[in-house]
């Protein structure tokens, strides 16, 4: 249970997962934000207004998947690092997942890293496809990894090795 362990339940996740139809059309954000806290950078950073302007800053984000193109600007801007982008159309047997990542050293494209679940469990391997770390992201890199289709909704972190064990 999220409030006891920090891990969202399948029911909580079902509420924020874009529809199957939307997932089938390509990259889309998944906003794993379940608590009413005073925070709105996801909405103010979204260039396509897919995350709608908040009426009350304590609102949970209201998201229109049809307006989202999976650009991942919100991934780097969410102070809670709670947004991910999933592209199930990446290849016939792989899903592309864009994750926020704030550890050094950053992985490089081509690296094979350990795929980690929401609970911190190692669940397989992921191939780093791209690392976005422009100054405007202010040190929250967005790492694009390709994983077997079965892991697309499970992987939420990577262990990239190096001195900071993450």
């Amino acid at each position: 249970m999220l409030k006891k362990t920090g891990v969202a339940t399948p029911e909580e996740l079902a509420n924020v997962l874009p529809s199957e139809g939307r997932l089938n059309r390509g990259a889309v954000a998944v906003l794993e934000c379940f608590q009413n806290i005073p925070c709105n950078p996801c909405a103010t950073s979204c260039p396509r207004h897919a995350i709608q302007e908040f009426v009350d800053i304590n609102d949970i984000p209201s998201f229109d998947g049809d307006l989202c193109n999976g650009c991942a600007i919100c991934v780097a801007n969410c102070p809670g690092l709670a947004i991910f982008v999933i592209d199930e159309t990446y290849s016939p047997d792989e899903t592309l997942v864009k994750l926020p990542y704030e550890f050094t050293p950053l992985p490089a494209s081509g690296d094979v890293v350990v795929a980690v679940s929401r609970a911190g469990d190692e669940i397989g391997h992921a191939r780093v496809v791209r690392v976005q770390n422009p100054p405007v992201f202010d040190r929250t890199a967005v790492v694009h990894v390709a994983v077997p289709k079965a892991l697309g909704h499970e992987i939420r972190f990577i262990k990239a090795g190096g001195p900071s064990r993450a």
Binding site: G6, V7, C33, L81, R118, G120, F157
Partner: peptide, 23 residues
């Protein structure tokens, strides 16, 4: 306490990085 006091997004961040939270 019986539940996490801080923002749950912070909790999820450390949990997925491998830190158990024992309430």
């Amino acid at each position: 306490g019986p539940s996490i006091g801080g923002y749950l997004v912070h909790a999820s961040k450390v949990r997925r990085a491998g830190v158990p939270i024992l309430t």
